[in-house]
Amino acid sequence: MQADLTLKSGRRGATLDIQLLILVGILVLVMAVSTALTPRFLSYVNMINVLMQVAMIMLTGSAAVLLMIAGAFDLSVGMVLALTGVMYAFMSKNGIPTPLALVLSILIGSGFGLANGALVVGLKITPVIATLGTMYVAQGLAFIVAWIDGGANVTTGLPRDFEVFGRTMVGPIPLFLLIVFALILIFYFLFAKTNLRKYAFAIGGNQTAARLSGLKVGGVVLALYVLVGTLTGFAGMTLASRMGSGSPKVGTGFEFDVIVAIVLGGTSIYGGEGSFLGMILGALIIGFVGNTLNLLNVMFFYQTVLKGLILVGAVLLMRQLRSR
């Protein structure tokens, strides 16, 4: 009896580890194949390029992984990413000092997080529908602001310091990458060491029990939405600064990349379990695969198809691992 128990329980604890191992394997494989196919893959320029794409997914993913573990979703991140970038450009162009514009654009992200949280927690609207709604609001706003500016993107007439944040180098590495990775580290700490972790796992695992245990279920979910919004705002601002323009089109499919990275990393779509490191690995895989296909001049359209397949495949893989 005792031996039997040990065996059974050992299995489940190992599920995530197996998943992480598989992910590392896939990552190594992807990198090896990529390097073999195109030597350019490992070049400095390309690595910085990939890391920039991946860093944005990871940044939003750092908070979104907790949100998904708590059993909620955010589909609006892609459009919020676009909107905050456009707003950053628009504000600094129209006389607001760049540092202030920078902070304000991040706060716009927080504001959308707050709105999502209020809709889901306060008005009890299903997360999918609520964030689908705010997604369209953000998209509309991004296009309107760009249109008011007089074009498809906010590009011309930006102050000189607009690009400072995205272009400053520290040795061979862009400053913003260091800051983003520092933020990701902070969130890893939040994920691994703070009560937020406890709350998220408890709420996603059993909301009723969480409430009966006296946890502030609504407050935690609201806070997580605000964190996701804030980080997305930061990512949007960074991207705009790096590219030197605010474009309402940058965020298309971003929410999907984030969700795929998180699900690929072993987080259940029903909440209650998940892994930060898995999300990091998932983001790297998504980023590297996309990048290699780009380098090989495989059209970007295959990537969307591929990502759809990866998502479904990841869900099935998780189920397989769990049911064994």
Partner: peptide
């Protein structure tokens, strides 16, 4: 583009 905002609200 206001339409897209409006739809969000309507939903």
């Amino acid at each position: 583009f206001f339409q897209s905002i409006m739809k969000g609200f309507v939903l």
